[in-house]
Nucleic acid binder design. Sequence first.
RNA 1: GCGCUAGUAGCUCAGCUGGAUAGAGUAACUGACUACGAAUCAGCAGGUCGGGGGUUCGAAUCCCUUCUGGCGCACCA
Length: 573
Amino acid sequence: MIDFKKDIALILSETIEGLTKSEIESMIEIPGDSKMGDYAFPCFRLAKALRKAPPVIASEIAEKLSGNGLFATVTSVNAYVNMFLNKELFTKAVLTDAAEMKETYGSTNVGQNRKVIVEFSSPNIAKPFHIGHIRSTVIGNSIYKLYHFLGYDTVRINHLGDYGTQFGKMIVAYRKWGSREEVEKEPIKSLLSYYVKFHEEAEAHPELEDEARAVFTQLENGSREEYELWKWFREVSLMEFSRVYDMLGIDFDSYAGESFYSDKLCKVIDILKEKNLLVASEGAQIVDLEAYNMPPALIMKQDGSTLYITRDIAAAVYRKETYDFYKNIYVVASQQNLHFQQWIKVIELMGYDWSKQCIHIPFGLVSLEEGAIMSTRKGKVVYLEEVLRRAVDQTRDIIREKNVNAEDVDIISKQVGIGAVIFQELSNGRIKDYTFSWDKILNFEGETGPYVQYTHARASSVLRNAAVDIGKAELMAQEVDFSFLTGESAFALTKLIYRLPEVVLEAAERYEPSIVTRHIVDIAQAFNRFYHDEHILVDDPKEKKAKLLLVYAAKQSIKNGLSLLGMEAPEKM
RNA sequence: GCGCUAGUAGCUCAGCUGGAUAGAGUAACUGACUACGAAUCAGCAGGUCGGGGGUUCGAAUCCCUUCUGGCGCACCA
């Protein structure tokens, strides 16, 4: 594919002195209003060096550029050079590329097989998989997809919260109030009820907390009875979690959670001692971070048991040894910003130069309506499974209502309903806090997943109705007359398709799936506009072929974009 | 108190490595299905970009300051 911006920078650099090619490239803009050109170049900064007024410079550059085959026309308005591309040349390059690359269109091989770890989802065992978990799960999955698409060798890790004092509490609570039958029947609901009861009782009887800590220490020391209970809790929980992962279409390469590192902690503590980083404080062992304007990192409690920061350090060391990662990405809530700053600093102090390859990707808080915060301990949660189920049910109702001629209503309802939830989650910047709302999550109009999927289904429908075999799109692209695609809405669509690869790169670099989400909404809007402006299945076979190629490229771009979000692209809905 | 983070249309948000008249969606109103799917499209209306200062030819964007909300700050994760 031709990099038009780079080409333009090259052409400009021949007429401009004193600026490097890459400086020029970074100054080239895509005007918000296409009346100002497909690309524009502001000349204000050249004024001093050339000792001329910016508008004069702009018109001189414009004059030199016109005549170049890349452009249809080059004009200058105010101090800008306004470049209008040769539409046929541009359209041909873009659509041929999309037709050839198909399901890989949008990717660039920048990864070169380098190893990237994405840790995400990481729910706590024996606790509900609630709406708050959707963020790490869906954002993390999309970041994985982006890096995978770009040619990185990816490892997905579900760092299960399957260790810590909470399991002491859970075991104590189970022994006091639980029964095996209940847990076997409804594992998480039962375990959660014990956990809630524990916190209620502990208010009046704080000694329960001490008991729980003691039980966890026993577990950590390898006590058989506690271990068996813990293992059982873990197994039944994972079974429930995998039901949600199946609905979301999400997989992991590793479920090595916190417990996995329990035998790797001594080594970390030894290294910390060896480097003289560990100091005693109030009976506990800490790493002092005052020099870095941070509170101390608490490595070992008074009773000798460890904390999750210790396990995160051990996990990072283990991962470096095992995977030799290029990037080690953690998709974890912004509430844990300080925690990540602390342990990544400790890794640095331990002398590991790869500390900067450990990257925390934070996201904002989900709260419930009326400002209530979600609280597992109080049992106040919205189950993710229920959200997904209701979205699927509603989709099924809509499909029936619209009387769509589709055979697999159940499959499509799942693809669209769950897609709607995923899309909603990935629509806004991940750092934003938001309030969960049933109305919002079940709204399927406007900038939503169903809108984009509908556009894809509509494009698919047009291709189905055409008597042209689009299967060999790359061959078709060879013989198309691109002059049929120079209308305003067709060209606007082509320009958006062209930008997909750079959008994907930016989304990966910024760890921000919403950039892809926004862009495929733009593509869908441009497609719908084109669809309304122009008749596609016209009689003239040449014109029809050209338009079908554009429809094909748009459909493929939307499909690839949806796939990067972890969504399906149904042919009918 | 200290640190991090957010504040843009009635609501939900883009735009933030400085550029032309700040954009979508939604809600309200108006119009378009006897051409390819109306979960669609078009139109109308909606703004002290939290406030104040500064840098610059040019600031929603950068710097300073201030206000408001969210999160975090030692034996939970």
